[in-house]
Amino acid sequence: EEWMVEKALMVRTGLGARQIESYRQGAWIEGVHFKRVSPSGESTLRGTTWYNYPEINKFIR
């Protein structure tokens, strides 16, 4: 699984929702560690946020 939603990321990493938000707003790079995608497939600020687990795992190492 490369891309996953927040709940799956929480299960895989043990991070809480606030921790994920903090990383997203600070250290993680949009387009690398996470992306927002609307149902139409376009990038957007209001779409579902998807997280790239392999890239996040590399960051944590």
Results as ranks from 00 to 15, higher is better:
11 V>S: 11
18 R>W: 13
14 G>T: 03
10 M>H: 04
46 R>A: 15
42 E>F: 07
26 G>C: 13
30 E>V: 05
39 P>K: 08
31 G>F: 05
49 T>L: 15
41 G>S: 10
46 R>Q: 15
22 S>A: 14
35 K>N: 04
57 N>A: 15
51 Y>V: 00
52 N>F: 06
11 V>H: 12
2 E>I: 14
18 R>D: 15
19 Q>E: 14
25 Q>G: 08
34 F>H: 03
41 G>F: 08
11 V>I: 14
46 R>H: 14
60 I>N: 03
28 W>K: 00
2 E>K: 07
45 L>I: 12
28 W>C: 02
3 W>Y: 02
7 K>Q: 12
3 W>E: 01
15 L>N: 01
53 Y>F: 12
45 L>K: 09
31 G>S: 04
3 W>F: 02
54 P>V: 14
35 K>E: 04
33 H>R: 01
60 I>L: 15
34 F>M: 03
29 I>E: 07
61 R>P: 04
34 F>Q: 01
39 P>Y: 10
18 R>Y: 10
58 K>D: 08
59 F>R: 03
34 F>D: 00
17 A>S: 11
29 I>T: 10
55 E>M: 08
1 E>R: 07
21 E>L: 08
40 S>T: 13
25 Q>M: 13
39 P>T: 12
24 R>H: 04
34 F>E: 01
61 R>E: 13
24 R>Y: 04
50 W>Y: 14
2 E>V: 13
25 Q>D: 11
46 R>K: 13
45 L>R: 07
5 V>A: 09
51 Y>N: 00
3 W>R: 01
3 W>T: 01
5 V>P: 13
20 I>W: 02
8 A>N: 09
46 R>V: 14
2 E>D: 11
16 G>P: 06
49 T>Q: 04
58 K>A: 10
35 K>Y: 06
17 A>G: 06
41 G>H: 09
2 E>N: 08
25 Q>W: 06
1 E>W: 09
1 E>C: 10
35 K>W: 05
19 Q>S: 05
53 Y>L: 13
36 R>H: 15
36 R>Y: 15
38 S>A: 13
33 H>K: 00
7 K>Y: 12
43 S>A: 10
46 R>C: 12
61 R>F: 10
45 L>F: 07
14 G>I: 02
59 F>D: 03
53 Y>R: 02
23 Y>P: 00
36 R>D: 11
58 K>I: 08
45 L>D: 15
51 Y>D: 00
56 I>W: 01
28 W>F: 04
16 G>Y: 07
46 R>W: 13
41 G>R: 07
9 L>M: 04
53 Y>S: 02
17 A>Y: 08
8 A>E: 15
56 I>Y: 01
6 E>R: 10
24 R>N: 03
11 V>L: 14
17 A>I: 11
18 R>H: 14
36 R>L: 15
44 T>Y: 10
17 A>D: 05
5 V>Y: 07
16 G>V: 10
28 W>D: 00
58 K>M: 07
35 K>D: 03
17 A>T: 08
55 E>D: 03
49 T>C: 08
47 G>Y: 13
59 F>L: 06
59 F>P: 01
6 E>D: 05
6 E>G: 06
45 L>Q: 12
33 H>A: 00
7 K>W: 12
5 V>I: 10
33 H>V: 01
24 R>A: 06
49 T>W: 15
50 W>D: 02
56 I>K: 00
31 G>T: 03
30 E>Y: 08
6 E>A: 10
32 V>L: 10
9 L>G: 00
16 G>L: 13
61 R>W: 09
11 V>Q: 14
40 S>R: 07
43 S>V: 11
30 E>A: 05
49 T>D: 05
11 V>A: 15
54 P>A: 11
50 W>A: 04
21 E>N: 07
13 T>K: 01
25 Q>S: 10
6 E>L: 15
3 W>P: 00
33 H>T: 00
10 M>T: 06
58 K>Q: 07
45 L>E: 14
31 G>V: 04
38 S>H: 12
50 W>F: 12
17 A>F: 08
47 G>E: 14
29 I>N: 04
7 K>M: 09
34 F>G: 00
49 T>G: 03
27 A>M: 09
41 G>N: 10
12 R>F: 07
10 M>N: 03
6 E>C: 12
15 L>P: 00
8 A>V: 12
7 K>H: 12
3 W>I: 00
4 M>D: 00
29 I>C: 05
47 G>I: 12
37 V>Q: 08
9 L>S: 01
11 V>N: 11
23 Y>K: 02
59 F>C: 04
9 L>E: 00
21 E>P: 01
50 W>P: 00
40 S>N: 12
9 L>C: 02
52 N>M: 02
29 I>L: 07
40 S>C: 11
51 Y>E: 00
9 L>W: 02
48 T>C: 08
22 S>I: 15
14 G>C: 06
1 E>P: 09
26 G>P: 00
52 N>I: 02
15 L>S: 01
36 R>S: 13
43 S>C: 08
27 A>K: 08
30 E>M: 05
50 W>I: 13
9 L>R: 01
4 M>L: 11
6 E>S: 05
36 R>A: 08
33 H>F: 03
60 I>P: 02
18 R>V: 10
7 K>R: 10
21 E>H: 09
27 A>I: 11
37 V>W: 07
34 F>P: 01
36 R>N: 15
61 R>C: 11
41 G>W: 07
39 P>W: 09
12 R>S: 06
3 W>C: 02
47 G>D: 13
29 I>H: 05
21 E>Y: 08
47 G>K: 08
49 T>E: 05
61 R>S: 12
53 Y>D: 02
3 W>D: 00
11 V>R: 13
12 R>L: 14
34 F>T: 02
51 Y>G: 01
14 G>V: 02
51 Y>M: 01
52 N>V: 02
56 I>R: 00
40 S>L: 11
56 I>Q: 00
46 R>Y: 13
14 G>M: 04
58 K>E: 09
20 I>M: 04
1 E>M: 08
53 Y>M: 05
42 E>N: 11
37 V>L: 09
58 K>V: 06
20 I>K: 01
17 A>K: 14
20 I>P: 00
16 G>M: 10
42 E>I: 08
32 V>A: 03
57 N>L: 15
40 S>G: 12
58 K>T: 07
53 Y>E: 04
38 S>E: 12
58 K>Y: 06
55 E>R: 05
8 A>H: 10
4 M>F: 05
4 M>R: 00
25 Q>K: 13
11 V>M: 14
19 Q>H: 05
32 V>R: 06
42 E>D: 13
13 T>P: 01
26 G>R: 09
48 T>I: 14
